[in-house]
């Protein structure tokens, strides 16, 4: 059994807006095994980014974690003081974001920004930190690092900036790297470089990676385990092979069927009809029920739990519970469902 390094249990995060309470994350649970990569996938508004920000407690001022636990090696991070939290961020748990230009400070050199972390967390001198910065730039594959270390972010390309972000994140040998859409803004050839780099460094340093993405291709190739999110909840959690070979939740099935594939021809894409519900007006019962072709009255009345299949995989769908009134074998999104939605 692999040791669990991060365990998120029933996490709930709300934002308080003029229009009312927005439950952006509503009962999210998953665990991150040591040294493995877990993917959190979902479409816009599914709460995947808010989940990661809640773990590090980096929410905007109108947002609040209202329930649940985030256990990092047994300790509940939600009970940490702000000071203790600060010594953890960028040190034990690091994060990289989608847009490296907006997460780097334009008026400091790359070297100063990497050094900042080292001085803060490891008490290094300025000089030692700068020397380590050069090493880190080399580690992330930036050519002529001794020159680059003195440059400003605007002098670097998008791919290089993301490499700098990774260098900052890895400066203190974190145990967990949270990467929020790290390659979404990059071209595919650069994406391949960056994903290869993350995988390579992960193996060398033995860290765990939480990868937040909307790209199922990236998930299939980089993750060991996957949590699929929909409308603020995890609807399916399983190992990557099971997810792609035998997806259980109708949403996951629909997502895979609506994906245009670069590796094979498809006659017709099968979309999921309708749109993601507004977080202010969540449907009663299962949140996917208005878009689900298999929905029954039970789905429209009661929210299913995350049911365990006994093999460590979980699914939030009534079909997999003994209370399910319909047939056992349900062909959701069958081929006949190709009409215009």
């Amino acid at each position: 059994m692999v040791e669990t390094i991060l365990d998120v249990r029933d996490l709930r995060t709300s934002f308080y807006t003029d229009e009312g309470e927005v439950k952006a994350v509503d009962g999210v649970s998953f665990s991150v095994p040591k040294g493995k990569t877990i993917g959190i996938v979902g479409e816009s508004g599914s709460g995947k980014s808010i989940t990661s920000l809640s773990i590090l407690r980096l929410l905007a001022s109108n947002g609040k974690v209202v329930g649940g636990e985030v256990r990092f090696k047994g300790d509940n991070l939600l009970a940490y003081s702000e000071k203790k939290m600060r010594s953890l961020r960028g040190n034990k748990i690091s994060m990289i974001f989608q847009e490296p230009m907006t997460s780097l400070n334009p008026v400091f050199t790359v070297g100063q920004q990497i050094s900042e972390t080292l001085i803060e967390h490891q008490g290094m001198s300025k000089k030692a930190a700068m020397a380590k910065s050069v090493d880190l730039l080399k580690l992330v594959g930036i050519p002529s690092p001794d020159k680059r270390v003195k440059q400003y972010p605007y002098e670097l390309s998008g791919g290089m900036r993301q490499r700098v972000m990774i260098a900052i994140a890895l400066a203190c040998n974190p145990e967990i790297l949270i990467a929020d859409e790290p390659t979404t803004a990059l071209d595919v050839t650069i994406q391949a470089q960056i994903l290869g780099l993350i995988r390579d460094l992960q193996q060398r340093m033995g860290m765990s990676v939480v990868l937040i993405t909307h790209d199922l291709g990236v998930v299939a190739e980089t993750c060991d385990y996957v949590a699929v999110m929909y409308a603020g909840q995890v609807v399916e959690y399983s190992d990557v092979r099971t997810l792609f070979r035998k997806p259980k939740h109708p949403y996951t099935v629909g997502l895979l069927k609506s994906l245009p594939r670069p590796d094979e021809d498809q006659e017709k894409l099968i979309p999921i009809h309708g749109t993601v519900p507004s977080p202010l007006h969540m449907p009663v019962g299962c949140r996917f029920n208005p878009r689900c072709p298999a929905a029954t009255d039970l789905c429209r009345e009661k929210l299913p739990d995350l049911f365990d299949d006994g093999e460590g995989n979980q699914v939030r769908c009534w079909i997999y519970n003994e209370q399910w009134p319909g047939e056992k074998e349900v062909d959701v999104f069958g081929e006949e469902r190709t009409a215009r939605c």
Binding site: D187, A192, G217, A220, R241, L256, D263
Partner: peptide, 25 residues
């Protein structure tokens, strides 16, 4: 060839060999 090989494919069992291009455009 490099561009096509760089696309992540939504199939965990596929052989993954991505040609890495040096540097930037």
């Amino acid at each position: 060839k490099a561009l096509l090989s760089a696309i992540p494919v939504p199939d965990p069992d596929r052989e993954r060999n991505h040609i890495v291009l040096r540097g930037d455009v």
